[in-house]
Design a protein around this nucleic acid. Structure first.
Ligand SMILES: [Zn+2]
Ligand SMILES: [Zn+2]
Ligand SMILES: [Zn+2]
Ligand SMILES: [Zn+2]
Lengths: 165, 165
DNA sequence: GGGGCGATGTTATGTTGTAACAACCGTACT
DNA sequence: AGTACGGTTGTTACAACATAACATCGCCCC
């Protein structure tokens, strides 16, 4: 049996690949769905992918403004709404922040691991978890819709770092 | 084998019992922990228990003010912080709202069912869910801390109501 | 060219949460 | 009694997050 890889990317991975892959996948998915990935929306998606740390709407806004883009809160929130609608971005409720979806192809009820040390968030797409939730809820007569699952803790890299101290 | 009861109280239950039980349990737990359940904190807890619908901090604030209590946002947030600290109240991240804990005796990583029809939230304390999350996360090298699990859907009562239409 | 429509710009405002400091209040020690 | 202390509450100001409402733009179609 294989150990699942860490949900977090290596600290030294080629992040430009992440960004390229995300933008390519976004283009493809929008094309397929007949949605318009305008240059503003594309740019916001790219900014969300600046790192694997969830980013707040106003941080995106500041960046856009610093680039000379005319921007106000609705500018950013509308772009984010679109990206979330298309499944390209997820919102982290605990953080009021947004993170790019690494697997926008497949629709999923995302679960997130949030490292309190490095601030990164990783998506955990574990059917067993969704299943356990569904089972527990339905056993009590509750009809399950959207699930919000966000787990704080320490990623493998940060555990190592802290141990060495 | 028994079917677990619905996590939601019956629409016709004696809610005053809920409130009394919650306040009694709070007194006991604070006593035991050496924490001071002041009259303000007690009143805020009682207000949180006004119904099984999560309530926003500013709604609590308005009520306090309408009762002649000197109150500003910190008044409410400090009381809520205390109550959460003592495990008497939980915060629902998706709603930015607060709900009383029905079982403050036992510490637990709470999971919530939120009915989008009636607005009520119920606590689901299913060890299998926490276990599944822990397992999925740890298999990927993530050390689990606090879990946030909030499930939107329809409670049994509201499913019935909607079907009859 | 004009009408329709989705995207974006703009202004204003609503909602949620916190920082910082002052005042108060019980308790314990003198 | 006086007084020093720590925890609670009052008060003011502000920060952070989000949306309503309406104007404008640009494109496609007729
Ligand atoms: Zn990356
Ligand atoms: Zn980390
Ligand atoms: Zn009740
Ligand atoms: Zn319901």
């Amino acid at each position: 049996m294989d150990l699942p890889a860490s949900a977090f990317p290596s600290p030294v991975h080629d992040h430009q690949d992440c960004v390229r892959a995300a933008l390519d996948a976004a283009e493809a998915k929008c094309e397929q769905r007949g949605a318009r990935l305008t240059s503003l929306r594309r740019r916001v998606l790219e900014l969300v992918w600046t790192s694997h740390e969830p980013v707040g709407a106003y941080a995106l806004l500041d960046t856009l403004k610093s680039e000379g883009q005319a921007a106000a809160p609705p500018t950013v929130y509308r772009a984010l709404d679109f990206l979330i609608e298309q499944g390209l971005v997820h919102r982290l409720e605990r953080l009021n922040a947004f993170v790019g979806c690494p697997r926008p192809e497949a629709s999923h009820s995302a679960q997130f691991l949030i490292c309190t040390a490095c601030g990164r968030a990783a998506e955990l797409d574990d059917p067993a978890i969704g299943q356990a939730v569904r089972q527990g809820a339905e056993a009590r007569g509750f009809s399950v819709g959207r699930q919000t699952i966000e787990v704080e803790g320490l990623c493998a890299d940060c555990q190592g770092t802290l141990q060495k101290k």
